[in-house]
């Protein structure tokens, strides 16, 4: 019994990380209908930015967010303004193929700059510290921190979208970009801001990933798939749904790993495919589409 509770608990906490992977993807799809295939590689780019910050300044990995978040925001803004805006409004091929090309470019640039060696950020004792809950049950402080961050980040995004002027403009542009322009919304700037925010969120995902596991330049695409699966399981356009999607994916993977370690990824993918077959709009679809 404790075994089952433990599995669900660990899976839920892992889901927090997946929700952080997915929140940015969900946001930019919501605002500009862009599916960014390079999203996973941008998570890895954030991990390397943190790695570099730690190497150069000697600050601890969590504090490196002070540097990584603004750097990634600027990269996101520039990327959207300088490259991705040009792909929008021209059918599905340009955004898809340009972000695919970008994914290959980022992977190989990281390979060139940092080699194929695995890296990891070390956080010290906090990484393995845990709160005992019972005889065979404990919650790790670090997984808990990741999950709490995911909840806070998603609540913050939700507040941004619904309580601020720019958030209102994000939603208006998503509904009808042409009419939004009529009232003074410069969609190019706004899309760039959305990508900046998305990559600021990606920074958290990247730093936590780098502390939690080994990383190398090639692991981005798998992260894209996790993010994508969380978004689809949760239902397009719903940020809390994305958190739920991440949790379901996390639990599925943890249960799979419990049966056989080789089954971890497969179990996650199968959960995704089952949702696709039986609930193609996801578990918590947005009412208005």
């Amino acid at each position: 019994m404790t075994g089952a509770i433990d599995t669900i608990l660990q899976g839920t906490l892992l889901g927090g990380l997946y929700a952080l992977f997915a929140a940015g993807l969900s946001l930019i799809f919501g605002v500009m209908r862009l599916v960014n295939i390079a999203h996973g590689d941008l998570i890895v780019l954030a991990a390397y930015t943190a790695f570099l910050a730690v190497q150069l300044t000697g600050i601890d990995p969590l504090s490196s967010l002070i540097i990584v978040v603004p750097v990634m925001f600027v990269i996101g803004y520039a990327l959207q303004r300088g490259l991705l805006n040009a792909t929008l409004g021209r059918g599905i091929l340009p955004p898809l193929l340009v972000t695919f090309g970008l994914s290959i470019i980022i992977q190989n640039a990281l390979l060139q700059g940092f080699s194929a060696d695995s890296r990891k950020l070390l956080l010290g004792p906090f990484e393995t510290a845990s709160i005992p809950l019972g005889p065979d049950l404990a919650i790790g402080w670090f997984p808990l921190l990741i999950f709490a961050t995911a909840v806070v980040v998603i609540a913050a995004l939700q507040a941004l979208l619904h309580r601020t002027r720019i958030g209102r403009a994000f939603r208006a542009v998503s509904d009808d970009p042409e009419t939004a322009r009529l009232y003074g919304v410069d969609h190019r700037h706004l899309f760039a801001m959305a990508m900046g925010v998305a990559l600021a969120v990606v920074s958290f995902a990247g730093v936590f990933l780098a502390i939690r596991t080994n990383f190398d330049p090639a692991i981005g695409p798998a992260r894209l798939l996790f993010a994508f699966e969380a978004v689809i399981i949760g239902g397009l356009g719903s940020l809390w749904g994305t958190l739920a999607g991440g949790v379901i994916l996390g639990i599925a993977q943890t249960v799979g790993a419990k049966i056989d370690p080789a089954w971890q990824l497969l179990a996650g993918h199968i959960a995704f495919l089952l949702v696709l077959i039986f609930r193609p709009r996801g578990l918590f679809p947005r009412a208005v589409d």
């Binding site: 599916v35 295939i37 994508f228 990824l265 497969l266 993918h269 995704f272 696709l276 077959i277």
Partner: peptide
């Protein structure tokens, strides 16, 4: 299964399927 996804989502969905085949054959 994958035809339930449109456009860019179809693209990533096909990728997931390829991963499933890779993991199964492993």
């Amino acid at each position: 299964v994958v035809f339930r996804l449109r456009g860019a989502y179809f693209a990533i969905g096909t990728w997931v399927v390829a991963e499933v085949f890779r993991l199964v054959l492993a």
